[in-house]
Nucleic acid binder design. Sequence first.
RNA 1: GCGCGUAUAGCUCAGCUGGUUAGAGUGUCACAUUGACAUUGUGAAGGUCCCUGGUUCGAGUCCAGGUACGCGCACCA
Length: 890
Amino acid sequence: MDFKDLPKAYDSQSVEADIYKRWEESGYFNPDRLPDRNQNGAPFCISMPPPNVTGVLHLGHAFENALMDTMIRFERMRGKKAVLVPGTDHAAIATQAKVEKMLIADGMQYPREELGREKLLDKIRTYAEESKTTIISQIRKVGTSCDWSRLAYTFDEERSLAVNTLFERMYNDGLIYRGYRVVNWSVKGQSTCSDDEIEHVERKAKFYTFKYSEDFPILIATTRPETKLGDTAVAVHPNDDRYKQYIGQIFSVDVGAAKPLNIKVIADEEVDSEFGTGALGVTPAHSAVDFAMYEKQKAKGNPIDIIQVIGEDGKMTAEAGEAYQGLTATEAREKFVTYLKDQGLLIKEEEIDQNVGTSDRYGDIIEAIPKLQWWLDVNKEIPGRKKSLRDLMRDAVTTGLDGDKSKLVTIIPENITKQYLDRIENLRDWCLSRQIWWGHRIPIWYKGEEAKFSIESPGEGWEQDSDTLDTWFSSGTWTFSTLGWPNETDDLKIYHPTSWMQMGFEIRYLWLMRMILTSTYIFNDIPFKDAYIHGVLRDKDGKKFSKSSGNGIDPIDIVNEYGSDALRISLLFGVSPGNDSRFYAEKVENGRNFTNKLWNISRFILTNNEERTSNDDSSESEVRSSRFEGRTLADKWILNRLDEVIASVTKKLETYQFSPAGEELRDFTWNDLADWYLEIAKVEKGKQEILMQILPTILKLWHPFMPFVTEFIWSQFNEDQLIVTEWPTSTLDADNQVSGEFEILRSLITDLRRLRAEQGIEPAKFVEYSIVADSDQSQLIGQNLEVIKALTRAESIAIADTIAEDWATDVSSTMTIGLNLSGAIDVDAEKVKLQKEIDALSPYIKSTEAKLSNSEFTSKAPEHVVVSMRSKLDEALKKVASLSARLSKM
RNA sequence: GCGCGUAUAGCUCAGCUGGUUAGAGUGUCACAUUGACAUUGUGAAGGUCCCUGGUUCGAGUCCAGGUACGCGCACCA
């Protein structure tokens, strides 16, 4: 291979597709086809959070893929039996809502009525399949090394079996029940939704104070007057002296509903006497809180009525009365308010801010209506377990299940655990049924009064429940249904509990909690050991990316323009767990620039090596086989640094610190290696062996972050594939003396460069320096003279006792350095500069001296702090002395 | 109302269990450019670490209170 033929700039477009194909053909994505080293390694499994089949891959997905793929490649190289299991999500409501919207945009008015169940499902299925294909090809494009042979779909046969099996077990354990309750109802979506699928929006509302009739003794306040047509009670606090006397009384009032309302005054601790009038009109059918009171009264043997005045179509029912029937809630509200005004019953009307719940998929305001639904009981004791689902969910993140720490889910960042627990305590039963059609049909069949669980029709005359299951019910099985459950597969035995899970902050309740619920219930085990929670990506101004605000970025466009590697590191850098991060073009450009830098570093090393090997017959494998001991200070230093970086990056990846790991690697690669060591190597020569030891190591370290460019460079001088090579290890025997000496050398070079830059000497010009140094320093300079000369563009460097008066000077470490200006010195400017430097040091010297003379400090502070402070002070004092001496001579 | 998070250079962010003269990237300015790389190099300028108290020999870091922004839950009679 002639490395000189490699293009000057890395061209991602021309290599990525081939590289991905090569990986796929190698089979290394599949843990069963990994080399022996991995076969004998510990299992490591990540379940990919399945993207919804609602369209295309967005930037958030690309981010998650970068996280997961970095992790899986790291562990694969470390010799684990690593697998990333991919999949997609049928996303019940989200997908149906999307397809319905498209059909409506195409001119259809009521897709469900016009098409019917089967035809609409066909349309959705076609759309879902198309999305799936698109998404999968996009996941390949960003380089994710997932095992496509294990590809799963939440709605495929295996996963459907898992869903039905889970339902069956919970049903048989009596945890799933059918109950008539107030549910969250989306009129637009014609379906229930869970508490987690509601988005609260703030808006202005009118707050009306009124009474039911002229002689009704208690005032009521409400923002929903129209629901008052269904009131059956007034609740007051039991200790409220204003109303105590009425408790237990029933008032019959005629407000124009179908029948006069029998309003009973009841006492309830929940009522806040301070709010509104201190009395609450109870509408059991249209408020979850009121419904709870209704149930409480029933339990007390003191029941109140329930009247549904709003129907599933969002319009007033017959119960609301002839005058209201068929009106929308808003129309009814106006009409009822007018009636109250006319009757002189409206006391007050004021504007307030309130939060209303809206459907996160359909966008309309959620109505509370009573409905017969399937529920999952989170409080009931699981037969034979002495624990409820709520208990299991709590145990899994606190003590570990049964107090077993190996069955503990660690949430990262830690503080999310608090929020999780807070949520657990407030958890209500989970409404499982949905009236949309796209999803797993509830596996319950009815015949007259009879109901039973069955996947297939149990026979003649049985009819299946028409509802479908909440999409998160299937998502909850994801970590194990993807591994083959309910079948007792090897995958399940080997990989469950999975090792690591990552997910967005916004689905920590929806999904994290449900996976824990499901897994603890089925296996009495956790779904994953560590859960890494990340924030959302925002644009440059901190806005969320969304189609409606028009700031969307297609990750595939970025890949095409800048390459997948550039995209990946730009997504990972500057991100910390649990926090939102920003994403913008400059970050990707920076990623692309770095990719190119690595490319050119490699090109330099390889061509350099080629020149050497062309007139040398030792083989490459020999060169790489043994660790090379450096000859010069720079050699020893770079090997030291490399060793430190290996240790540090490994540690950081082990603890999921993606950004710090990547940034440390970048700093090493760009600053230490490229800017310093390679420049020195050009001077010192004969670095082929050491460079051919460094290059493979940095390619390995970079591979999890930037798989394409590293694999491609690797392929230029290797037969095997980088993806399965062994992760480098550190010897951890860093030599402090070497790094100290190199630091002196490095700052000397920087200071000499600064000296000439300050004097406005153009970089290309050769200059004369002289340096006042002690014997150790002179030796260091002598040993590295050629390097210093080359990197500072020096004609000559003399060790002197003093610097000539007409030369520019400065102090580096404790050496005085001088630059020959051939008499063109500006003495005044020089004096000002030296005085400035002295002044800059004086506050530091003062405060440090004060500290060191404080016996409280010297006695209480650890010794190393005192020692290092003392030596730094020494150095500063010497520096000031040199500067002052120089100044006084001018 | 309750809870959570964030506040460090113009911008985006690091800064572990308190101990360097507080860092990086990007942006800005100056100089350079056939040399692995202009997708570059060298150098410079840039900070009251939100405010007020406290603990401590020592606080960007810990504690208390406050301010600003973001988020969640609840209420929504």
